[in-house]
Amino acid sequence: ILEEAISVVMSGKMSVSKAQSIYGIPHSTLEYKVKERLGTLK
């Protein structure tokens, strides 16, 4: 489920907030994982 949510957000089909409510994943977790994948994590 997490992988799917990350893919959807990264493809631009859904915002982090929308994915959070649909997949039930905490906003901070989703945002962290997306940034980690994009290489923008500081």
Rank of each mutant, 00 (worst) to 15 (best):
G12K: 07
E36H: 03
S21M: 11
V9L: 04
T29V: 14
T40V: 11
A19W: 01
Y32I: 12
L38F: 08
E4C: 00
S17W: 09
S21Q: 14
K18Q: 15
L41A: 14
L41E: 15
S21G: 12
S17F: 04
P26S: 11
Y23V: 03
S28Q: 13
S15V: 02
E4K: 08
V8F: 07
Y23D: 08
Y23L: 00
K18R: 10
H27G: 13
E31W: 06
S28K: 12
I25F: 03
E31D: 06
Y23I: 02
I22H: 14
E36T: 05
K33R: 11
E31N: 08
L38E: 15
E4G: 03
I22T: 15
S7T: 12
G39R: 10
K35S: 10
V34L: 11
V8M: 15
K18H: 09
G24K: 07
S17K: 13
A5T: 02
V9R: 02
S15N: 10
L30V: 05
T29W: 07
E3D: 08
G24M: 06
V9M: 02
K42L: 08
P26E: 12
K42M: 11
E31P: 01
A19P: 00
R37W: 00
M14G: 02
I6K: 05
A19K: 00
V8Y: 07
H27C: 13
G39W: 07
K33L: 11
S15D: 14
V16N: 04
L41S: 13
G12D: 06
L2V: 08
I25N: 01
T29C: 06
Q20K: 09
V34R: 04
A19G: 03
Y23H: 05
H27Q: 14
I1S: 14
E36L: 03
L38V: 11
E36G: 03
S11L: 08
G39E: 13
P26W: 00
I6Q: 02
Q20M: 07
A19D: 05
G24F: 01
Y23N: 07
L30Y: 00
V8L: 11
I25S: 03
K33P: 04
S11C: 08
G12Q: 02
K13A: 09
M10E: 07
S7R: 12
V8G: 09
S17H: 15
E3I: 02
Q20L: 03
G39F: 08
L2T: 06
L30M: 04
T29N: 15
I1R: 14
Y32G: 15
Y32P: 10
L38A: 14
I6H: 02
K33T: 10
R37L: 01
A19M: 00
A5G: 03
I1D: 14
I6G: 04
L41W: 10
L30T: 02
I22Y: 15
L38P: 05
R37K: 10
Y32M: 15
H27A: 15
S7G: 11
M10G: 03
H27L: 13
S28Y: 09
